[in-house]
Write a protein that binds this DNA or RNA. Structure first.
Lengths: 203, 203
DNA sequence: CTAGATATAGGACGATTGTCCTAATGCAGG
DNA sequence: CCTGCATTAGGACAATCGTCCTATATCTAG
């Protein structure tokens, strides 16, 4: 019983360290030796917890899926207004601004890397995007956007990704903040346009 | 004389093959053996043309810089209208749609990878972004956007990057086309708003 | 206290990495 | 034809990769 907990503890520490290293240096560039020295255990000891390096990747992705789901659920409970929840999503860019400028978005960069490696776990990484996508779609749907909810969700998901890429490439905090403001303004425009019955404003 | 041309020919073939492989599989994941077999030469023969793998990366980036500059210059000559030139940029997403869905944007993915590797050439890769950024800023400036030209350039640069990331993650061609349409509509709105002296439209 | 399962450390393994060396080849100018 | 330079092929090199094996340590159950 107790050793089971110990084992899980070590296993979780491995996953946690691998999660961070995969984010900071990429999956391919992170070796077993790197993870081992980060956790403080022996290299050969890995295979009592994971059969292969891909198994660690799977566990890392599952950990990210669980953490993300938990975060989104929290937002769904606390934030009363769907629009405010969407704004919470947009502001991840600012909250994690320092990390993003250094290492990019954890979701986008992993997805890109796995695509280039032709890795089997690419679809699992895409599931992380789907988590955000579905959550955003639900918020837009509650705001009354109906069939347009999914494309609106994809839109700000894409905007966020682009901001992360450029903020990382140029290490530009001002750009990041400005684009966050633009995204919030875009959201307000969408909501404002929702109550307007005719299209006279655009014409 | 002639052997010099031969040598350069081999050198260029190496750079060309490395360019493609770096794009399709990433810099780190591409080995000398991969490039050698792609070019059809011996592995040890590399070091008559390049001192190190990083040297190949530098040459690949310079090749991309030159090709990009050439493409942008061509657009600057042929396209009469700055707005039409910007639309040409936006439509890269569609022209290269198949490759982007498979491997992402060559500029963005390289920049992200080099950031994670803490690679010295990261700033060189960012220079590729700067090339597009300056060109776009010039087009917006000619349209009369003045001080706002740079942020508008960064905006559609970021939008393009985000679209590339998601189109790659979901392998979604419909999303790609829809977002291209949105970007063109956004451009039209910006230009339309430019001629309006007051802000009554937004109010 | 003992037996057995589990966790760990440390090293061996074949393969592959980037890098370097050397011998052979091809071709130019004298 | 010969000499010299540029180009090439092929392998050696140490380091590192992911993986696996085995002996030791740790801890629980009986």
């Amino acid at each position: 019983m107790i050793d089971r907990e110990m084992a899980l503890e070590t296993r979780d520490r491995i996953i946690e360290a691998a999660d961070l290293l995969f984010y900071q240096h990429g999956f391919e560039a992170t070796s077993f030796a790197d993870i081992a020295s980060a956790v403080g255990i022996s290299r050969g000891n890995f295979y009592h917890h994971f059969k292969t390096k891909d198994d660690i990747l799977d566990s890392v992705i599952n950990r990210r899926l669980a953490n993300t789901e938990q975060m989104l659920d929290r937002w769904e409970v606390t934030g009363s207004d769907p629009a405010e929840r969407i704004r919470s999503f947009i502001h991840i860019l600012i909250v994690n601004g320092e990390k993003i400028r250094k290492f990019g978005c954890p979701v986008g960069t992993l997805s890109s890397e796995l695509a280039k490696l032709n890795h089997a776990a690419k679809s699992d990484a895409a599931a992380l995007f789907t988590l955000f996508r579905s959550w955003l779609r639900r918020q837009f749907d509650r705001l009354g956007f109906g069939d347009r909810s999914d494309e609106l969700a994809m839109h700000i998901l894409g905007r966020s990704q682009g901001v992360a890429i450029l903020a990382n490439a140029f290490d530009d905090d001002g750009f990041l903040h400005h684009e966050v403001d633009l995204m919030c303004a875009w959201l307000d425009d969408q909501i404002a346009g929702l109550t307007t019955t005719n299209n006279s404003i655009r014409e």
